[in-house]
Design a protein around this nucleic acid. Structure first.
Length: 275
DNA sequence: AGCCAGGACAAGT
DNA sequence: ACTTGTCATGGC
């Protein structure tokens, strides 16, 4: 992966399989939005970014320092997703799903943000998840620049009450958010330490938190710990698996990229109604 | 209006 | 080991 610095932009000209809409709108993240010009705006690791495409180039409005420090890894630019697409295209349906999802890259999201976001996601729809997450940031995150907020730290949340979180309108998930924040701050769970564990052990540890079951912990492992072989199953995935796969299907056929395969399946099902 | 949403969990078979 | 009811809220 090569880059050049051009004025206020870092320019990627030889990166393959990087579509901004595919990556940002495939359901893995909740804080990136396109403006009327197709420029995506988002925040990660406490830094704001504008990113856009121009022909085959991707332009990031950032410094070289921040690019190397944050965004290069965030966008997983050292991973060859063209190769992964080929690897997971094990049958006709997967060929279609992977082709449709070409350009999706699995972001390396902040661990606490991934955990929190997918706690909020349970039994919820994506537009409302985005709304709750953004309100959460605006109310309790540090303001980076006017109108842009970092994801709230666990420390900032642990000292609050559930009444303080009421404006989120997150319902029964509010209690789970509070408990997760306290577990992090009190050292009951060590999110950074989880990164050194095998995926199954990390998932098991996460499930000791209230309101965190197999699905939420799997999403945290995939999007927050970048375990690309973890295969989260939600209602959309159940529908897709029932429609397009044998009943004895085993996601291990995609190993070590079952999580990426999952993203293609999920994305395809949501956008094509399974056709 | 009513069904459903990137679930988890306890209680009942 | 499976099925069911419940939880809070709003998008479509």
């Amino acid at each position: 992966m090569n880059y050049t610095v051009n004025g206020e932009y870092v320019v990627l000209s030889d990166v393959t399989d990087f579509s901004l809409p595919a990556t940002f709108e495939c359901g893995q993240c909740f804080r990136w939005n396109a403006d009327e010009n197709g420029v995506y705006h988002g925040v990660a690791y406490g830094r704001a970014l504008e990113i856009k495409s121009n022909g085959d180039d991707i332009l990031l409005k950032t410094t070289e320092l921040d690019f190397l420090d944050v965004w290069k890894d965030y966008f997983d630019l050292d991973t060859d997703y063209t190769k992964i697409r080929r690897h997971v295209s094990v049958n006709g349906h997967m060929e279609k799903a992977a082709e449709f999802g070409a350009g999706i890259r699995i972001l390396r999201q902040e661990k606490w943000e991934a955990l929190c976001s997918f706690i909020i996601s349970q039994c919820n729809n994506i537009p409302r998840i985005k709304k709750i997450v953004e309100t959460f940031c605006a109310l309790f995150g540090a303001e980076i620049s006017d109108g842009l907020y970092a994801f709230p730290t666990a420390e900032a949340i642990a000292g609050l009450t559930e009444t303080d979180l009421a404006p989120l309108r997150a319902g029964y998930r509010t209690h789970y958010i509070m408990e997760a924040a306290r577990a992090v701050v009190y050292g009951i769970i060590d999110l950074n330490g989880l990164a050194g564990l095998p995926p199954e052990a990390a998932i098991k540890a996460l499930q000791t938190l209230p309101g965190v079951g197999l699905k939420v912990s799997s999403c945290m492992a995939l999007y927050g710990l970048h375990h690309l072989d973890v295969f989260p199953v939600d209602v959309w995935m159940k529908k897709a698996l029932a429609l397009h796969f044998d009943c004895d299907f085993d996601p291990k056929v995609f190993s070590p990229y079952a999580g990426v395969a999952q993203q293609y399946i999920f994305n395809f099902e949501r956008n094509n109604n399974g056709k």
